[in-house]
Design a protein around this nucleic acid. Structure first.
Lengths: 340, 340
DNA sequence: GTGAAAGCGCTAACAC
DNA sequence: GTGTTAGCGCTTTCAC
């Protein structure tokens, strides 16, 4: 009730008049323990509501059944869904997840990594922060023998398993969709250039233009932050140009939402005058009006898959790193519909 | 590199030719250790990149610097923001948070609680699942000496600290706002009746009606799930009534969004014909068109405050439970504007 | 089949 | 100011 003395193996042993070693063995169902003692132990365990001490187990077994998750933010649809996927797989395998949010701060990411209690963590799942290009702090974790798996925002220089969506193909599909709908002057409002997936989406954009022989206009590619406000600001810039685009491919839905809001404010008929397409399939894309065409990201699957891979790295120390690339899916809505 | 031998106090002691105890003392800056040895230890620690073994520390100190967070879901604005608040405070105090998502399943909540490794957790923060009325599994944790603090969805029967928004007052304000704008036939689409905050919001609704001498119509209060779909379904029901309401107070923004979408589909002029007000101030409420009037919940503050309280319970075993009630704020938007 | 004893990495009481 | 020792709760040889 008060100063917690949680019941230990010793308590069980004493009550049963046997040794701690036997109780331990009975519990783990290993070595040969007589059915009889095993049963009596199990009964006592229930009766006393014994819960194993994971600190002690961790100390001797060198494993903790904890995995750390380090990511930029959780207050958006994509990341919160990924975490739910991770949780799901971790839970199924009796792993706990310890959450670390960097808030998009590279310094904080470094501090978190440096201070990670490697002794009470079996592995780590990370999605790097926008601007982090130096990844020594993550490499160091691996060098200490703790496996790391990347998801979504991966560190290119580190050799380990990675799980991402097919950003190149998704972007290509998005832009080709715009072209098929008749848009020709396609802008791209993008994210920080330092991230692999940003570059991949840009590459998809460029390839689609090239394939359809549409000239590329450097001014129409704008790099800024990932949020809605940046999407709005980028759109303002595009609108103020002498040579104005007739479609916007946003690097994610939040920026696309910013774009739509700005276009509406300016009285521009979305779809007709200017088409907009996003990336993610955040629920808001179906709610906003006009609804937003987008490329759906398999967020939940990414969480599950990356956790599965991490678990494999944990159980087989020489597991060969895999790069898994999941496909996105185009979801056409009103923001790219030209009824002309 | 391979089988991880993380560096321990013993390694440092050996390299420096001193005892483990001294190293331990130097590191904790306690007892009197000579400046000289302290410095040499600190240098070695940096050099070898020593990281304390939290399992060992936990074993001897009976504290882990971990807190568990148990909540229904994280894929929505409110909960993900609360967690961010918790994270923020936990991080400042060198605590890790271990995440447990129940997915609104009472059974899973019970399993999670029963299996919580009490020995490697200093406290737990919980927001109960919709239908959980029996809370023995949570009481049991407290009985084992591990403090529990509730946030948002609290268990009324358990005596401990709780942090919530002022649901009664918020609802009252919301409904009074509708009345001031000229709506008289106000419906309430609500959540599962088993939750305290659902009842509180209903109470606020009823009190506002009474204060303004508006008759109460039982048919206009509908209890269902918390999601957008339920909001839409509830709205259909209301629309099909002979005596149709002219305003809807939704228990949260997601249901309000469902209502708006349904009303739009039916061609009803929102604000004019039927007013809609929500609760939360999910970002979507500013994005949807017409934008949604709502009562802002102090999600981040709730996370921070509940974590602070838990930390107090952890450090003072006889900390007297506090119930903290934070205020919401009305944010008027288009969905309740009558230009008549 | 079961017990005794050592040890995981650390802290704390007790010496000196 | 520092070393020695015991012990946190558990697993794991090694005996018997």
């Amino acid at each position: 009730m008060n100063r917690r003395h949680l019941v230990t193996l010793k308590d069980i042993a004493r009550e049963l008049g046997i040794s701690v070693a036997t109780v331990s063995r009975a519990l783990r169902d290993t070595y040969d323990v007589s059915e009889e003692t095993k049963n009596s132990v199990l009964t006592k365990v229930k009766e006393l509501n014994y819960r194993p001490n994971f600190n002690a187990m961790g100390l001797v077994n060198h494993k903790s059944h904890n995995i750390a998750v380090i990511l930029p933010t959780i207050t958006n649809y994509y990341f919160s869904t990924v975490i739910t996927g991770i949780q799901y797989t971790a839970y199924k395998n009796a792993y706990n997840i310890i959450l670390h949010v960097t808030g998009e701060s590279p310094e904080r990411e470094i501090t978190i990594a440096k201070e990670l209690p490697l002794s009470s963590i079996d592995g780590v799942l990370v999605s790097v922060t926008s601007e982090s290009n130096k990844c020594d702090h993550l490499q160091e974790i691996i060098d200490n023998g703790v496996p790391v798996v990347f998801f979504d925002r991966v560190a290119e220089s580190i050799k380990t398993s990675k799980v991402m969506q097919n950003d190149y193909e998704g972007a290509f599909t998005a832009v080709e969709h715009l072209i098929k709908r008749g848009y020709r002057k396609i802008a791209h409002i993008s994210g920080p250039f330092s991230l692999a997936f940003t570059k991949e989406r840009l590459r998809g954009y460029l390839t689609a233009l090239k394939k359809h022989k549409i000239p590329f206009n450097q001014n129409w590619v704008i790099h800024s932050e990932f949020n809605q406000e940046s999407g709005g600001a980028d759109t303002y810039k595009l609108l103020s140009m002498r040579d104005r685009p007739d479609a916007i491919f946003a690097v994610n839905d939040r920026k696309a939402v910013g774009a739509i809001l700005t276009l509406k404010k300016k009285g521009i008929r979305i779809g007709q005058e200017i088409g907009v397409i996003g990336f993610t399939n955040d629920p808001v894309s179906a709610i906003i009006s006009p609804s937003l065409t987008t490329v759906e990201e398999p967020a939940s699957a990414i969480g599950e898959k990356s956790c599965e891979l991490l678990l494999k790295h944990i159980s087989k120390k020489d597991f060969i790193p895999e790069e898994v690339i999941l496909k996105g899916k185009l979801i056409a809505r009103e923001s790219t519909s030209r009824t002309s």
